[in-house]
Every structure is written in structure tokens, then in C-alpha cells.
Simulated scan of single mutants.
Amino acid sequence: MDLKMILVVVFFFLICPVNIIGLWWAVGSPLVLDPTRICRKTRRLRGKQAEICQNEPEVVREVAKGAQIGTVECQFQFRHRRWNCSTSRRSFGKVLMQDIRETAFLNAITAAGVTFAVTQACSAGHLLQCTCDRSIKGISTDGDWEWGGCGDNIDFGYKKSREFMDARDKKGSDVKTLILLHNNEAGRIAVKNYMRTECKCHGLSGSCTLKTCWRKLPIFRDVGDRLKEKFDGAAKVMAGNDGLSIIPVGATIKPPAKDDLIYSEDSPDFCEPNKKVGSLGTHGRECNHTSQGVGGCELLCCSRGYEKLQQNITENCRCRFIWCCEVVCDTCAVLKTIFRCL
């Protein structure tokens, strides 16, 4: 089983149930978080993936959580686009099997999510193999502050994400595998290279005579924003003459950096349902009639037109604060105008 097919299996059995069975799956389903779900459904795993499945089921559990984190962020970043990162069985697997820009983002955000989840689990004490990072404790700086505390162990999270997401067999040297490995690395870099510094003041009466600082994971929304920018500027590539490298399509295009996203196939327009490419179409999608962007009715509806509808919704209103400490709201019926693609 090649690496791309393994990823499809992982996504189907860890992520698709979120939409099929409801929100309950997303917030703690034992099926989704069961580490044996990946390993049991991919018995032909080999090498490092098989080793992790056998010896580190708690790490695989964090891999599952990371896949969920990545998918939720994908759905946020693509919520206004024609392909909105739907986890429908008719769409998700088909998109993953291609080498389009959307697939590049999916692979990158998933690798980022796994890196993030495993690193977070280390700091929380959920993994026996690692702890938070004390490796730079005590190193002096410019005198205003010093390293201390217990930072997030990004090195371990990066390592486990790479071991599991990049595992491949000996035949995995084709251009599709090279693209997949490149985008996985771009996702991990979007986490590792943007660690934050957090500090705590020490001193009498709240003074800040000395600050102790440590390294902390970036906000994952920032990771998603960063990878979405890379998606917008993704480079189309092809195999090099040696068959072991990738080069940009076009003589004037600079080679992609390690943190860039790359792809080899043009994306479908996703306007109409198409089972072959995983397109669900945009018929019936809600759009913004005043926007000129990708979520605007002209682009999202693929110039087919749109309709104006009146819809009754309920929302909280007349909220007030009651001492102490509660916010109480009334429920109001509101007539909302929405626009949907024809």
C-alpha cells in the first residue's frame, strides 16, 4: 500500500465520521480517538508506521487528534471556496488521491496538526516517551530575562509527525511521493519555525526584576493562515531529469523553498458535481452578494446566478450580566436575508 493510499484510509476512518454521525464524534468519540483504528484498517503498514502502531499506541492517538485539528482548520480556511474541505466520502478521498493545490494544503495542514497535537501531549504529560522541554533552561540572555520554565517539546512533536506521516516503502521515489513529503515538511515547518516566547515576571510586590521565558507552540489559527498564504502562492512542479528531484514548471519560476506548497496537476473548477475528481459542486451554497472575492456570489456560483431568500433564525438577544457571575440572554426570532447559488 503506497503512502497516498495510507493517508486516504487514515482520513476516511478518522475524519469522515465527524460529518456522517455528528458533532459527538468530533469532541471525544472513542472510535475516532482509538489508536487501533488507524493500525487495524491499514494492516499492510510497514517500517516506522508499523513500529509506532505496535509500540506507541498513545502516539497514534495523538496522530488521530492532529488529523482532526488539521481538518477543522482546513474547513475554516476554505469555508468560502468552491471546494470547502468537505469530509464527504464522495469528495475527500478523491481530492487526496490527486496532486492539486487543495491536496497540498490538506497534507501540509495535517502534518502540522499532528506535530501540534503530539507536542501538546508532551507538555500535558500524556506521553511517557517525552516531557516538556527544559533543554535551554538557565542559558543567560541580555540580562532582562533568562530561559527557564518548561517549554513545549517541538522537537519530539516534529520527529513523531515526520516518522508517521513520511513513512514509505522502498518504491516511494516517484514525483507524487516527493511532492507529498515536501508538503508534509512545509506543514511541520509552519509550526516549528514559529514557536512563541512566553514569559513570567518574578520580583517583590509584582515587580519584574527578572523574567523567566520559555518556548510555546504557535496559535494553530496562525499556522492555518500561514499555510493558506502558501496555498495561494503554491508552485506547480514536475519531475527532474534524474527522477529523484522536483523542479518548477516554467523557466522563470524560482525553485520552491522548503516552506512552500507544491503541486503537479491543475485543480478542477469544482463548479459542478463530479465523482471522478471529488467535486460536490456549488449549487445551493450560501454566498456573499456584495463580495468580489472567492466567497462572492459571482465566483462561488460560477456565473450561474443566485437567489435571494428570507430565512427565520433564532439568536441570543438582550443579554445582561447578573452579579456574580452569569450572562443571561433572551431568544429572539430574526428574519435574515441570505443568497444561495443556483
Rank of each mutant, 00 (worst) to 15 (best):
N19R: 15
R320K: 14
F231W: 13
K275T: 10
F11D: 08
A257Y: 14
Y306Q: 09
E286S: 12
T110R: 02
V59Y: 00
N84Y: 13
T131M: 12
V114G: 05
G284W: 11
T87Y: 01
L299F: 07
W25H: 14
H202A: 08
W323R: 14
G143W: 09
E229A: 15
V32C: 10
G224F: 06
M238A: 12
C208M: 11
A121M: 05
A111D: 03
V118Y: 00
G206F: 04
A64K: 00
D242Y: 10
N241G: 14
C16Y: 08
A257H: 15
I179E: 00
P256G: 06
C85W: 03
Q49V: 03
E286I: 14
R340V: 09
G138R: 09
H202R: 10
C271P: 07
L280W: 12
E307L: 15
K137H: 10
R304G: 01
P35M: 06
T337P: 00
C341P: 00
R79Y: 05
D142W: 06
A234I: 12
R90F: 06
R89W: 07
Q77L: 04
K276W: 05
K228P: 02
Q49K: 04
Y158V: 04
L3R: 15
I154R: 03
R320P: 03
V9A: 11
C297K: 13
R168Y: 04
I154P: 01
S123N: 08
S140N: 07
V95I: 11
K159D: 12
I38A: 05
C208K: 12
R340C: 00
S86G: 13
V223H: 06
V118F: 07
C16N: 14
G172K: 11
H80E: 13
Q120S: 07
N19V: 14
L280I: 13
V249Q: 15
L180R: 12
L96V: 08
T197M: 09
F12R: 11
